[in-house]
Design a protein around this nucleic acid. Structure first.
Lengths: 220, 220
DNA sequence: ACTCATTCTTGAACACGTTCAAAAGTGCAA
DNA sequence: TTGCACTTTTGAACGTGTTCAAGAATGAGT
């Protein structure tokens, strides 16, 4: 029997996500969710320990959509700039229905104790999934990315992606036009910048950057 | 008469900041502030429209301290790497008493409607003050920074500083050792990276980066 | 059919940030 | 002194996220 329990859980989650999309984070109160779902407030809390955990539900779903959309869109795109653009654009695509919700999300997510914190423990799975998208974007590129960069690049790009997401949240231009522009401009620049790694004088700086990144990551 | 009113305002602010420092943001309730200050809750709200505005008070104070400390510490430091290090380290210095408070602060600050949002209207003054520190760090450097970079660099460094601050918030190492390491490593790297602007192949990439920055900033 | 441990559900209660009508205080003009 | 407008102060009340003791429902073992 497919757990009556699981049904209730799904119901609450579905109602919550729908309300987040339609009326925003703050106006979606736990009481409203419960009422709309036809359960008691306490019951919603039986399945989700906090409002933040409902946000986590949304986060995971958006992440999944991104993985699917990006994988599909990457087919046939060879060059790094194009692949990077693809991953970033599809990322923004799946987030778009939640744009008005974005600032509340980030505000929630940035709190170290939040289950949605992208750097935190609770979202290791989601982060790894997201990282995997960038890894595939890098690994599948031709001409290939310089070998010494290949290991760390996906993580750095993912970090940049967090920055783009932040930019997007603040982007009040229609359809978030500016964010799209930023992606279209930055992706080729990153690719070109990386190709400079062959120049001797530049190569050393790259090595040091990688060294620093590794050092700082290490003694966490 | 130095306004009894102003005295109350100061009292509330002082008590609040002290409590933020000592027991953190969440545990510092408006009721606790009021009680400790010997006023009613409503009275605290007469002077500060929200708890966020008390955070703004803190933000401004920290900013001021940073400006003073950085200006003093910059004396006699010539090279860009050193000057950058100085500004970043003094920035972390003045924030240190509030480290445990950091994540709540950022979580508050990142909300576009917050008076403390560093990108927002309400903190234009504070941001300009902070920007001025970076501008002076750049302008006072010798050997001088490439002319074409000089206009935009302070803003980009300020942005990087926001990133460092974010890193610091998450830095759980003792005394935030890792953040210090990051600063010591990154500052010379930035300086060296900028000096590459003279190399022809690199120069073009730099130009495009600046072009992109300006484009994206323009049609806000 | 009858336990009874486990899972699920309820709604009242709590502390919080915030609001507001009303009271108290203040200072100046008549 | 009295009157009056203005500023300051109060504390009860509201809606929020969250907790929890208590009760229902469920289902496996007898």
């Amino acid at each position: 029997m497919a757990a009556k329990s699981e049904q209730t859980r799904q119901l609450v989650a579905d109602v919550a996500l729908k309300m987040f999309r339609e009326i925003g984070f703050e106006k979606t109160t736990m009481r409203a969710i419960a009422q709309e779902a036809g359960v008691s407030v306490g019951n919603a809390y039986y399945y989700f320990a906090s409002k933040d955990e409902l946000v986590q539900e949304l986060y995971i779903q958006v992440q999944d959509e991104h993985a699917v959309a990006a994988t599909k869109a990457l087919e046939g795109v060879q060059d790094l700039a194009g692949r990077l653009k693809t991953v970033l654009h599809t990322g923004i695509d799946v987030m778009t229905p939640y744009h008005q919700f974005g600032s509340d999300f980030i505000s929630t997510a940035i709190r170290p104790t939040s289950p949605v914190n992208p750097f935190g423990e609770a979202s290791t799975a989601a982060r790894d999934a997201s990282l995997a998208i960038f890894r595939s974007a890098v690994d599948g590129a031709s001409p290939a990315v310089a070998k010494k960069l290949r290991a760390d690049l996906p993580e750095l790009l993912w970090l940049a992606y967090m920055g783009v997401a932040l930019f997007w949240v603040y982007d009040k231009s229609e359809g978030q036009r500016r964010t799209r522009k930023l992606i279209d401009g930055a992706a080729p620049l990153v690719a070109r910048g990386l190709s400079l790694a062959k120049i001797p004088g530049v190569s050393k700086v790259f090595d040091d950057v990688l060294g620093l990144v590794r050092t700082v990551k290490e003694d966490a």
